[in-house]
Write a protein that binds this DNA or RNA. Structure first.
Length: 286
DNA sequence: AATTAGACTCGGCCTA
DNA sequence: GGAAGCCGAGTCTAAA
């Protein structure tokens, strides 16, 4: 699940709760999820302090007091759960039917803090990772990302430039992190719907107006999704009694067979495009 | 014409 | 067996 809005939601939660805490110990139960040496990973983190949580695209970046950074990527099924007494801050993949006794069998890395609280990194499919990097290495990583939506650099002009000389499909371009950082499969489908553009449309065939609509779609949908605290396919409620509320705003994703909520004529179809489930209304998306 | 860099596509990583 | 992400290998394409 975790795309920009979900990662941003967990970033805010962790920044509020963990920033300033000293790490008492780190337990790595599955070495696969640590990139590089596990020994070094533990050595760097033990006794270190989380200063600040940042985000670039779908990548979480925790600044450490030592001057290094902890990179966290949740990929498809990663979850971060911070437990402090009865308080829980959690984000990432669906929590439906999850075993809330922590750690559970999908818990691969555990951070323990001096105040008794803990941070669990769970990942069912084990695609996610954590990695320690230096400032130099971080800058190298960040160069791989395109423009960041919801920042001043995300202008129509920059967006239009990205679409110049591209031969791929509208959806594939929206999802390419090198050009636009943060959109994944759900939000790319939603943005295409917003713009009335069929996800498979080749970029050279898009009109100026359609590109502008795609741009507006990115802004409107991502801003709304962040405000709703992301799309959480679960009944999970966080410490403030809130849950990811964007699911009810989804217009096409997960709505195969339903009547289109806009034109009320088409029926949402689901096809495979570039190996990904792709949803659209054949009536109002051209 | 041959070369090269960048764009593009797709399989694989895993679990349940 | 469905899947919300990304990397790397391989192929394709435009430029000069």
């Amino acid at each position: 699940m975790p795309e920009l809005p979900e990662v941003e939601t967990i970033r805010r939660g962790l920044d509020n709760q963990i920033a300033g805490l000293r790490i008492k110990s780190v337990q790595v139960k599955k070495a696969r999820l640590v990139k590089g040496s596990v020994k070094k990973f533990i050595a760097v983190l033990t006794g270190n302090v989380f200063l600040k949580f940042n985000r670039r695209g779908k990548l979480l970046i925790a600044a450490l007091k030592s001057g290094q950074f902890l990179l966290i990527h949740l990929k498809m099924t990663g979850q971060l759960i911070y437990q402090h007494g009865r308080q829980l801050i959690a984000g990432g993949h669906s929590f439906v039917g999850m075993d809330w006794r922590l750690p559970n069998r999908h818990t691969h890395i555990i951070f323990s803090f001096r105040n008794g609280s803990r941070l669990f990194f769970n990942d069912l499919r084990q695609f996610g990772y954590m990695k320690i990097v230096s400032k130099i290495e971080l800058e190298k990583e960040l160069k791989k990302f395109g423009i960041e939506p919801l920042t001043a650099g995300f202008s129509l002009k920059n967006f239009v430039e990205i679409f110049a000389n591209k031969k791929t499909s509208a959806k594939a371009l929206l999802m390419n992190q090198k050009f636009i950082a943060g959109l994944g499969n759900i939000y790319a489908d939603e943005v295409c719907f917003y713009a009335k553009v069929k996800p498979s449309r080749r970029v050279p065939s898009l009109t100026e107006g359609e590109i502008k609509k795609l741009y507006q779609g990115c802004r409107v949908i991502l801003a709304k999704a962040v405000k709703a605290r992301g799309t959480t396919f679960s009944d999970y409620v966080d410490a403030d009694g809130r849950q990811g509320g964007f699911i009810k705003f989804l217009k096409v994703y997960g709505r195969k067979g339903e009547k289109c909520r806009r034109c009320r004529r088409g029926v949402i179809v689901k096809i495979k495009q570039g190996g990904r489930g792709t949803h659209f209304c054949p009536q109002c998306q051209q």
